[in-house]
């Protein structure tokens, strides 16, 4: 498994390091298998939650005999049940992710694998959902540490698609009757319809949300690209449409204003709904940036 430049995309040390991290949500949805995520479900567990009157069929071992002795009535102890967390990884495969050098997709795949490895390590269910113009539902969710290799294979098999319709993909995903969990959107969030429809679609998700925004240094400062100067004909990598520009300071200022507004919209969305937002520089190593995100070992959403 290599990057487009030939360097290894995944290596054992990378996986080993990311497995030290943990991913927790405030409360996972009920209905899953027993695992490590907190849920509102009551059942088997270690942490005491409450008492309830005994009914036929309750576990006799849970009867609190001290209460029966004092009150003469039979109560049983109930515990918080910890279940697994459904993690839905939406990986952007549009042309913009494959364009530059290094391509954003390399970092995106590493992030996808890292988050998947963390989730599998804590017995959560991982579903990989590549997308571009449409969402691709090609396999079932993966659970268990032994599925890490399978996840890596799935990630590696992904190939470039055409243009992005991020807003439509998110709307489509929001309509699926899935157990509430964590949605990880790994993308550059570039959509020719603008960021507003994307923000609206993200707001409709019933899941916890983690946005991983792949960036390049020249996104915010186009002058870092030597070709962007004088009279240029810009071609959209996804639609192949041309736009003739004369690069002037005024135009650059307008560009930067537009880009800042784009970032601002994502930031406001993350703050508004308590979502996670990781801006990842695709030209730099992924692991150090993930370490910053996960802080002292865990990320709680």
């Amino acid at each position: 498994m290599t990057t487009t430049k030939g360097s290894p995309l995944f290596d054992p040390s990378f996986v080993e390091q990311v497995q030290q991290f943990s991913l927790r949500v405030a409360q996972a949805g009920k209905g899953g298998r027993l695992a490590e995520q907190k849920t509102s479900a009551r059942g088997q567990g270690l942490e005491f939650a409450d008492f309830k009157p005994y009914v036929a069929g309750d576990d006799l071992r849970a009867i609190d005999w001290n209460i029966y002795r004092r009150l003469g009535r039979v109560f049983v102890r109930v515990f918080e049940e910890q279940q697994d967390l459904p993690v839905y990884i939406l990986l952007d495969l549009s042309a913009s992710m494959f364009l530059e050098h290094p391509a954003r997709i390399n970092a995106a795949k590493q992030v996808a694998l890292a988050l998947g490895a963390i989730a599998l390590n804590q017995h959560d269910a991982v579903t990989l959902l590549p997308f571009a113009e449409r969402l691709q539902m090609q396999h079932k969710s993966l659970s268990g540490k032994h599925q890490l290799l399978r996840l890596a294979q799935l990630i590696n098999e992904t190939t470039q698609q055409d243009k992005t319709s991020l807003a439509e993909v998110l709307s489509e995903f929001a309509g699926f009757p899935l157990r509430q969990g964590l949605v990880v959107v790994i993308s550059d969030f570039f959509d020719n319809q603008g960021i507003a429809p994307v923000v609206d679609a993200l707001g409709q998700l019933r899941h916890r949300l983690l946005m991983v925004q792949l960036t390049q240094p020249w996104d915010s400062d186009p002058t870092l690209q030597s070709d962007i100067s004088g009279d240029v004909r810009l071609q959209d990598c996804e639609t192949a449409q041309y736009a003739d520009m004369q690069i002037t300071p005024e135009l650059l200022a307008n560009y930067q204003t537009a880009y800042q507004a784009f970032n601002q919209a994502l930031t406001q969305l993350a703050e508004g709904r308590g979502a996670g937002l990781l801006r990842l520089n695709a030209s730099q190593a992924v692991l150090p940036q993930l370490t910053t995100l996960f802080g002292h070992g865990g990320l709680r959403l």
């Binding site: 042309a95 186009p222 004088g230 004909r233 810009l234 071609q235 959209d236 307008n254 537009a258």
Partner: peptide
């Protein structure tokens, strides 16, 4: 004219 393929065409169009 130089032809440059970019991913950020939407921002250039807004700027123009």
């Amino acid at each position: 004219t130089k032809v440059v393929k970019v991913a950020t065409a939407q921002f250039w169009q807004q700027a123009a």
